[in-house]
Design a binder for these strands. Sequence first.
RNA 1: GGACCGUUAGCUCAGUUGGCUAGAGCGCUCGCCUCACACGCGAGAGGUCACUGGUUCAAGUCCAGUACGGUCCACCA
Length: 873
Amino acid sequence: MSSDDQPTTSGAADGGIPAKPTLDGIEARWVEQWRTSDVYAFDRSASRDRVFSIDTPPPTVSGSLHVGHVFSYTHTDTIARFQRMRGKAVFYPMGWDDNGLPTERRVQNYFGVRCDPSLPYDADFEPPATEGKFPKGSDKRQQPCSRPNFIELCDRLVVEDEKAFEHLFRTLGLSVDWSLLYATIDERSRRISQRAFLNNLAAGHAYQLQAPSLWDVTFQTAVAQAELEDRDRPSAYHKLRFTRPDGSDLLIDTTRPELLPACVAVVAHPDDERYTPLKGQTITTPLYGVEVPMVFHELADPEKGTGTAMICTFGDLTDVTWWRELNLPARPVIGRNGRFIDETPDAITGEGAERYAEVIGKTIHTGREIIVEQLKAADKLVGEPRPMTHPVKFFEKGDKPLEIITTRQWYIRNGGRGDELAKALIDRGEQIAFHPDYMRTRYRNWIEGLNGDWLISRQRFFGVPIPLWYRLDDAGEPIYDEPLVPDTDALPIDPSTDVPTGFDEGRRNQPGGFMGEPDIMDTWATSSLTPQIAALWAEDDPDGLWDRVYPYDMRPQAHDIIRTWLFSTVVRSHFEEDSVPWTNAALSGWILDPDRKKMSKSKGNVVVPTDLLEQYGSDAVRYWSASGRPGTDTAFDEGQMKIGRRLAIKLLNASKFALGMGADGAGLVAALEQPVTEAVDRAMLARLADLVDEATTAFDGYDYARALERTESFFWAFTDDYIELVKNRAYASRGDEIAASAHAALARALDTLLRLFAPILPFVTEEVWSWWREGSLHAQSWPDAAALRADAGDAPGELLPLAGQVLSELRRTKTEAKLSLRTPITTATIVLPDTQLALLAPAIDDLRDASVAAELLTEAGDELAVTAELAEV
RNA sequence: GGACCGUUAGCUCAGUUGGCUAGAGCGCUCGCCUCACACGCGAGAGGUCACUGGUUCAAGUCCAGUACGGUCCACCA
C-alpha cells in the first residue's frame, strides 16, 4: 500500500508523519511550545565550567525594528544553540536599551511634550497626544512638563516598544531565557550603574572638570568623543586684515569669522620665518581692536592659509590645545544654546563693544553674516569669501555642528590622556579572542587615537542620575570639590528628589543647604555594565549568578560599536574586576541594501523584518542571516531567503521519506539500534562523521556560516545521490536484510542532520524531530562523530562521491536523449581505472536499481566514461 | 594622510597550513509528472581567480607593489 492511502495527520504536534508536510504555522506552534516548556531556561545551579554565558546586546527599543536585528541576533542564537547541545548551561539574557536620548526624542514626538526641569511634578498631568497622534513638525505646541512627568511618559512608551521587540525575537526563534530580561533604565540597572560610578569615584577613576568640551547646541548637552562623526559641510575661507605693531596688515584666513570676538592670540609655526620676527609682539584684531599676543606652536601649519591662524575660544579642538598649552585667557562668545552670549568679553570695549552688541542673542549663522558685513564695511575683509567644503564634527544624532563650550562635566578615565591605563586596556584586548581576529586592530586603533577621558555626564533627563549632591555655601554657590555621596544601601537614588544624609528637603537649593547634581549619565555609562546588570553583580542573589557566568564567554555585537560599547565595557570590567568582561568577541557585519549602501532608517531603505518572517518563514530568514560570515557586511538578499525556505521544505520531505521506511517513525527509532552492514551505507556514515567534525570545529570558532555551508552541501548530496541510490533497496526490493542496513543508515543520518541543522533552522528541525522522537530537539546533545565513525567501520568515504558521479553519468544518458529518468536501461558500461572500479564495486547493485538498468557492466579504462543502451519507450 | 577589510562565473559567495582539468546556489539553456518533494527532479553552457613582478617542482592560496571598492581614524586656520 502506498503512503497516499494511509490516513493522514494534519499537524505534527500530535506526533506522526503528515502526508503533506508544510511550514505553515510552524513558528506560532513552536514559539508557544518553547515558551511553556522552558527548554531555554538557564540552569541556575550550574557551576562556571559547565556554563556558556553571553553578554547579549540590548537593542535600542525606541528605534524601529530593523532587518539588521534579525541578522546579528540570529548569529548569536546559532552559537547559543550549539553550545546548549554541547551540554553547556547557556546563560542567554535579553535586555532593552531604553535609557537615553533616542527615547526622549520619541516621547517628545509621540506625546507632544517637552521636559522643563524647572516645573514641579503634576500628578494629574495628561499629555496632549497619545499613540503618536501628535502631528509632526509642530514643535512649538509641545507642552512643557516636569522631569518626573517626562520620565513617567518615557517609562510608559518603552513598555510598548519592548513588546514589539520581544514578539520579533520570539518569532525569530531566539533561544533566550526571558526570565533574565532587564532594561537599562530599570531599577536594577540604575542601582548597578550608580554603584559602579561611586566605586569609580572612590577609586579616583571618575572625576569632574570645568573644561572646554564638545557641545551639541540642539540637545544642549555635552557629548563624548565616541559619539562624534565627521560630515562634509560647505564653508568659506575669509581673509581678515589684522594689524601688526608697525601698522601694517597681517592677513589671516578663517572659516569662522564669527569667532573673531573670541580671538585670544595669533599663532604661527616656530620655524616660520615670515612670522618669527613678530615674537613677543601683539597683533590687533579687526573690528574689536583687541590686542592679542603673537604666539608660536608646532601645530600651526605654514602650508595652510596664510600660515598663521587666529586662536579662538573655541573654534576647534586645536584651539583648545593651543589655549591650554600656551596658557591663553578664555574669551567665550557662544553660549549653551548656540547663540552669542549677552556678556561682551572684557577685552572688547568702545566701538568694538558696540559692534559686538549687534550679534548678542543671534545664532552662529546670523552672527557670521553680521560680522562679515561689519568686516566689509570696515575694509577688513580682503576680497570675497572663497567657498570650500570641509569636514565638521557632529554629534552622531545631531544635525548642527558641535561647538566647544566650557562646562563642568564628569569623566571616567579611559586611557585617553596617554597614561599607563591606555596600555593596560590595549593588553586587555589581547586577552579577548576577536572573531574575526582582525577586529582587534580597530579596538587598538581606537584607544591609540583617544584624545581625552570619557565624558559621561549629559545635561538631559531620561537616564541614570549621577548619584551626588553638593553643599551650598553661604552665598548659595555649590562646593563641587566635596560631593555628598549616598549610602550604597539607598541606591538607586535621584538627587533631584532624594535628600542627602543630614539634610532635609527644605534646605534644597538654599544657601548653606544642598543641591542635587542635575546631570544624568550617558547611556553608554550604563550599557557598559551589561555583564554586571544581567548577572546581578553585587545584588542580593541567592543563586549566585555572578560567579556562575563571569567573565562571560561571548560578547556578540556589530563592528561599528567597538569604539563605544565594546571598549567601554572593557574599561568598566578593568576597573571593577581587574579582568576582561568576556573571552570572546563575535562581531557581526552590517546589512547592505542591493546597492551596497548601509541600510538605515534615514536612507529609507529599511525592510520590515516581521514581513520577511511572515513571507519566507523564520528558518528561511535565519538561513540568510547565517550565510553572512562573521564580521562581513552582507547584502540584503531575498533570493537567499527563498533558498532557505526551499532547504527547510526539503528537510521536511526527505525526512518524510526516511521515516516512511519505518512505519510511522517508530521503526526508524528502532533502526537506530540496528547494524549498518552495507558498504554504501557505511561510506555515507564515514562522510557524515567528517561533516560532524567540520561543523563542530566551525561552531567552536564562532563560524556558524561555515557550519551551515558544509552541512547544507552534505545534505543536498545526501538527498540527490545517497537517497536515490538506496531508495529501491530501502523498499526491500532485494531483500529485508540489506534494506535494514539502509534503514539503519537513514535513521542515523536523519538523526544527525537534524541536530546539525538545529542551531540554524530551529523550527523545521524541531517539527521533524517531533514526528518520531520525544522531547525537544534543542535539548538534545550535539552529534558524536566517533559513534558514526564506529558504525562506518572501514568503509571508504570516497565511495559515496564516486557512486554519485557514476549515477550522474547514467542519468545524463537519459537526459541527453530527452527521456524520463525512469526510462529503463538495457545495458550500460562503466569505464573507470582499476582502483576506482574496485572502490565502486559494492555500489554496483544500488547503481543498477537507481538507474533502472537491466545490466551494468564495468570495464577498466583511463577515466570515467559511461555508455548506455536505452530501452525503447 | 594612517590603519583595516575586500576584489574568484551575469548576480551572491565558498575555496582552512600552496597540490590533479577552480566550486556552490541563483539566473540562463535544454529536458523530465521519477511510488519524499513540480514550493520538485535531471543535465548543460558560463571564469586569463583585479593587475604587475617575485618565491616554488607547483600560486586563487605565500611575498612585494599597483589599481579599484568599502570601513574606521586623522585632517577642520
